[in-house]
């Protein structure tokens, strides 16, 4: 049995892929395979500091100061504070998901294990978002395939995702 190329455990995933014009054979164990397949998911938006290289000095002040949890501003639409929400367990209005997004994300991750909706979309949703939803759905399928150890299917989905991402042409990576 072949061993994982990144650690010493037995390999379960065997992929041949073309990278930078070279054919590479990869043999990975279960945990390294998960990591490897997740790399394509993480490759979405480029890290912020790269994007800002030229204008770094201007944007410094505003965003960073607010992340101190005790001073999250109240929702401008319904007036609820994050503290009030924590106390009663109910949000005040739909806008709170935007107003308290940073605070809610870890909570949602905790409750659902996920932070991105997949599933039904109102029929009247703008067409532009359809592409985005297809990507989300594929990423979800990829995760399920990895969880179920269907690695060939996972590799296929990963290619499809990369294709769609390239097609969208947004957020170029090196």
């Amino acid at each position: 049995m072949k061993k994982c190329g990144r650690c010493a455990k037995p390999a379960v995933l065997h992929i041949t892929e073309i990278r930078h014009g070279e054919v590479q054979a990869l043999h990975l164990c279960e945990s390294c395979a998960k990591e490897y397949l997740n790399e394509s998911e993480a490759g979405g938006p480029p890290p912020d500091d790269d994007a800002d290289l030229g204008t770094g000095e201007i944007g410094e002040s505003s965003e960073a100061g607010d992340s101190d949890d005790s001073v999250v501003p109240a929702c401008p639409q319904c007036g609820i504070t994050f503290k009030e929400f924590r106390k009663q367990g109910r949000l005040g209005c739909p806008h709170d998901y935007t107003a308290f997004q940073d605070e809610l994300l870890p909570l949602l991750e905790n409750i659902h294990g996920e932070t991105q909706h997949v599933g039904k979309v109102p029929k009247r949703a703008p067409k532009a978002s359809q592409h985005q939803f297809r990507l989300i759905r594929l990423r979800n399928q990829l995760k399920a395939a990895v969880d179920e150890e269907m690695y060939e299917e996972a590799a296929r989905l990963r290619d499809e995702i990369q294709g769609l991402e390239a097609e969208a042409g947004s957020g170029n990576s090196p």
Binding site: G89, R90, L91, P94, Y97, T98, L104, L107, L108, I111, H112, E114, T115, Q116, H117, G119, K120, V121, P122, K123, R124, A125, S129, Q132, F133
Partner: peptide, 28 residues
């Protein structure tokens, strides 16, 4: 759900799906 949605605008976000008063129900 479809029938009602055809004439009202539900609170919905691309990231969090259908928005609900309690975060335990959000998404679907």
């Amino acid at each position: 759900d479809d029938a009602i949605e055809s004439s009202v605008t539900y609170a919905f976000s691309e990231q969090f799906g259908y928005l609900t008063a309690c975060p335990t129900n959000v998404g679907t």
